[in-house]
Design a protein around this nucleic acid. Structure first.
Lengths: 168, 168
DNA sequence: CGATCTATCTATAACTC
DNA sequence: TGAGTTATAGATAGATC
């Protein structure tokens, strides 16, 4: 609160000043700005998620290589959605644009053939997801395990939503 | 610019009003807010990246499941850095994704040469995607099923956007 | 839809303690 | 160093086209 004897005589600060958008040279000032603005950015993302029922993930890596993340509902889930969408969408945009059902069925069939071949070449027979999972669980910390379980549950929910409970 | 005959008589707008941070009910207003604020959010991240020499990635998924991303230097790079801190995610992606990408590319390329002919031959759609899908699901491993389902959903969403809901 | 416009709200640069 | 203050720069809700 401004004190009354200063109210007229002088301003306590010059207020917010305009700064150019270029790397802040002074390391301490840069650190302060990074903290403040990062907080503001995460808050804005959080607000927008609520206002619009959207999901957000933000990854920030400081100059000192510290990693900060924000996520609604959580960064891992949102990133997974993004990676899957991007990877899968990358190669068939043109097909989707030009043609419809017939061509993408063909694409999927061709793909499945390729995928199977590669899996055979590479896997040496059949070390599948289950086996890999067991190995990983052996080496995991408690924290990693919790995260992993959360993630697995998320995947399962998605699968069940799409095709129902596995019949076999 | 304000016109002079209105300068005194009335205000053109009431200016920015305060809104509560809760889901905006009106869908069109929600959409407008999502667009405007998303743009603002991306701009702020961009500024902060420059000001502080930091890296940022933002993934946004709208209520309608559209995916938007921002990245400096690019989203993929930053996300990779992030994932490198998440052991189980890294392992998962290396086993599931890496080899699959090449096969998708090749499969689709091979398809490109023939798709017009095939589409012309089959016209309406032939055997039926649903039937084919059921067969595939029977033989899939858990890993394949996870990938397949995510991919399928993306594909469906994209197609519905392009050609509308299936009539049958 | 999307672009503009402005009054007003919010974020924050510089400052103080 | 961090937490709080202030005044100004910047973001944006609502209106209009």
């Amino acid at each position: 609160m401004m004190r009354s004897d200063e109210q007229v005589t002088r301003k306590r600060t010059r207020g917010r000043r305009k700064i150019p958008i270029e790397k802040i040279k002074c390391p301490s000032a840069r650190q302060v700005t990074f903290s403040k603005r990062r907080e503001g950015l995460f808050r804005k993302a959080s607000e927008l998620a609520v206002l619009c029922g959207a999901e957000f993930a933000i990854i920030a890596i400081s100059g000192g290589s510290k990693v900060y993340s924000f996520g609604n509902p959580d960064a891992g889930t949102v990133i997974n959605h993004y990676l899957n969408k991007r990877k899968m969408m990358r190669d068939y945009h043109s097909i989707v644009d030009e043609e419809a059902i017939g061509s993408y069925v063909r694409a999927v069939e061709a793909l499945e053939g390729e995928k199977r071949k590669l899996a055979a070449e590479r896997g040496g027979g059949g070390k599948g997801f289950e086996e890999w999972k067991e190995e990983k669980i052996q080496e995991m910390s408690l924290e990693e395990m919790e995260e992993y379980l959360k993630w697995l549950e998320c995947l399962r929910t998605e699968i069940v939503e799409k095709i129902g409970e596995p019949s076999a």
